[in-house]
Amino acid sequence: MVKQVSVFLPNEPGVLAKFTELLENNKINIRALTVAETADYGILRIIVNNPDKCIEVLRNANYLVSETDVLAFEVEDKPGGLHRIANLMGENNINIEYLYSTLTSKTAIILMRVNDLEKASTLLKDAGIKIFSGSEIYSI
């Protein structure tokens, strides 16, 4: 399981810059990120090298933060790679809340938030898909 840090950010100019500056000053490196935005705010979800420190730094700076467990697994970097996973989840009645990806020099990694983490994790394992642990992802 991988710890994702979610942050509430107003949808205004300069907000992201202030946020990233804080991360830089605290030597926090972003491994993967996705933003869900609405007209008035965005929810930034990030995977970082040190989630506990990241949360502490953000809380001290009065950001609204939460942590969420997500699944991180490998997909084949070729057509149909993601389809296989989506299909597996759908057939087993698991709802994918959202997902995003990151690339390393060797592989494509999907980060996925689902309604049933345990079940999804077992399904992936049984299908022979490589699931990454937190420490593996934080230290990519």
Binding site: S6, Y41, I43, L64, S66, E97, Y98
Partner: peptide, 15 residues
């Protein structure tokens, strides 16, 4: 103002 109690990583819950 959003409180920690109301905050969620899911847009659907916030909405």
């Amino acid at each position: 103002e959003v409180t920690p109690e109301a905050f969620s990583d899911k847009v659907s819950e916030m909405e």
